[in-house]
Design a protein around this nucleic acid. Structure first.
Length: 430
RNA sequence: CGGGGUAUAGUGUAGUGGUAGCACGAGUCUUUUGGGAAGAUUUAGCCUCGGUUCGAAUCCGAGUACCCCGACCA
């Protein structure tokens, strides 16, 4: 049984026979949501507890790609990435009153051996503002945007819908700091563009609307990015002609007039909140005396904005929106692999040898490939698995394709494929 | 947090008080191979605690977990 001869290089290429997860035809009856069903059956995720999921190799790859897109877009608008602690000092949160369970009911709290209380971070305004008060004091230090991609903990009363609402989840949270309102607004608009890019790149741009939502006590509105799907928790009203939407929680005549929308032209629909951006004014900077000195030597509180995206939720939303009765349909930029290589060898050495060659060529061309080198499976099983896993391109090598000296390539979204040469395949995927 | 439901093998399920069964999966062998293939064989289970009973997967009580609806959700 000793067989420590893995093919290695799994970062880019993977042999399916070495992938430790397996697909399933059925999933536990209590998973009802589409994302949990398909991601569970495909072996992308594994549930540990309600609202707590492990990301398995395939799911981890998708998550990392989403993370990469978000990082690129945040860096693009000047975000500086950091990594704050999960363990939270209650003293900081007491300054804003948010340590209280009556104010924030989603805390996970724990204790040191000596009984000192600690919290697990559900958001990071307090520690970040406190941190910056050590560094930021002049108008010359502004503007500033800081972000992190990190696991958050929220003690939700009800976790639900697979990875859409969990108790532990990866989140990108960015906070921006400005000398004045004008500068804040300028940056806020940049974030809107960056967010639109993100949702477009993960493949749900066409279904995602900038949505006016409650601004709480700080401002008139916050903005949510809502992706249309019946699986959504929120009800929003979409204006197709304006390309925007209004959350039902703020829909009234005054708001409609403010936004120049007509009630009759709005469509009510369910949607998932995949992103949220909002104005914090000086709430946190005042609590921590985060201020700057202007050129004339006068002190002012720093203005803040806050910008969040839940990565797991985003991944779940993609699955909710982009799938069919056979499985997931990953958009190219976040698919776990670019191409799924399926030899239908029927014990034919010619077929498996050629498939090995194709695999090696894809490897050397740095194209991410999942090679279904499993033996003894029927063609039907391989096809069904390929459809479930949802890799954008399926490349079949078989007696049939070899007769035409090629590989049968089919997009996941297409019914039929075509036989092309290895060189054309490489070109297509490059 | 209010309401509803469920808990039997790794997974999906049957089993209303009397020998826990089936399918999938996994292992071995043979035959198959373009849409989840066939046979043989092996493997593995009643959420926890307490009660009723000669006897409990089954009835009763408590607990726990999970799912759904609602509320909540900077």
């Amino acid at each position: 049984m000793t067989k420590a001869n893995f093919s290695g290089k799994m970062a880019l290429y993977m042999k399916q026979s070495e992938l430790f997860t397996k697909t399933r035809k059925e999933i536990s009856g209590d998973e009802v949501s589409r994302n949990a069903e398909l991601l569970g059956r495909g072996g992308f995720i594994h549930k540990e507890l309600a609202g707590v999921y492990t990301y398995l190799p395939l799911g981890h790859r998708v998550l990392k790609k989403i993370e990469k897109i978000i990082r690129e877009e945040m860096d693009q608008i000047g975000g500086q990435e950091i990594s704050m602690t999960v363990l939270q000092n209650p003293e900081l949160w007491k300054k804003t009153g948010r340590w209280s369970d009556k104010v924030v009911d989603s805390w996970f709290k724990t204790k040191l051996k000596n009984d000192t209380e600690l919290g697990l971070g559900f958001s990071h305004e307090e520690p970040l503002v406190n941190l910056l008060s050590n560094f930021t004091s002049s108008y010359k230090d502004l503007p500033l945007a800081v972000y992190q991609i990190q696991t958050k903990f929220r003690n939700e009363l009800r976790a639900k819908s697979g990875i859409l609402r969990g108790r532990e989840f990866l989140m990108k949270d960015m906070y921006s700091f400005h000398a004045d309102e004008e500068d804040f607004k300028l940056f806020y608009e940049k974030v809107k563009v960056a967010y639109k890019n993100i949702f477009k790149r993960v493949g749900i741009g066409h279904l995602t609307y900038l949505t006016f939502a409650s601004g709480g006590i700080f401002s008139k509105y916050s903005h949510e990015f809502q992706t249309l799907t019946p699986a959504g928790e929120d009800t929003i009203y979409v204006s197709e002609e304006n390309g925007m939407a209004v959350n039902s929680e703020v829909l009234n005549d005054e708001v409609l007039e403010n936004l120049g929308l007509e009630r009759e032209k709005l469509t009510e629909t369910r949607a998932i909140e995949v992103g949220n951006i909002f104005d914090l004014k000086t709430k946190y900077s005042e609590s921590f005396d985060l201020s700057y000195t202007d050129p004339k030597g006068k002190k002012h509180p720093i203005l803040m904005g806050c910008y969040g995206i839940g990565l797991g939720r985003l991944m779940g939303t993609v699955v909710e929106v982009l799938s069919d009765d056979k499985g997931i349909i990953w958009p190219e930029e976040i698919a776990p692999f670019a191409v799924h290589l399926l030899p239908l060898s029927n014990g034919s050495d010619k077929v498996s040898q050629y498939a090995d060659q194709v695999y090696e060529r894809l490897e050397s061309s740095k194209i991410e490939v999942l090679y279904d080198d499993r033996e003894g499976l029927s063609a039907g099983e391989k096809f069904a698995d390929a459809d479930l896993l949802g890799i954008p391109y399926r490349a079949v090598v078989s007696e049939r394709s070899l007769k035409e000296n090629g590989i049968e390539v089919k997009k996941r979204i297409e019914e039929r494929g075509e036989i092309i040469s290895l060189e054309s395949l490489i070109k297509m995927l490059k």
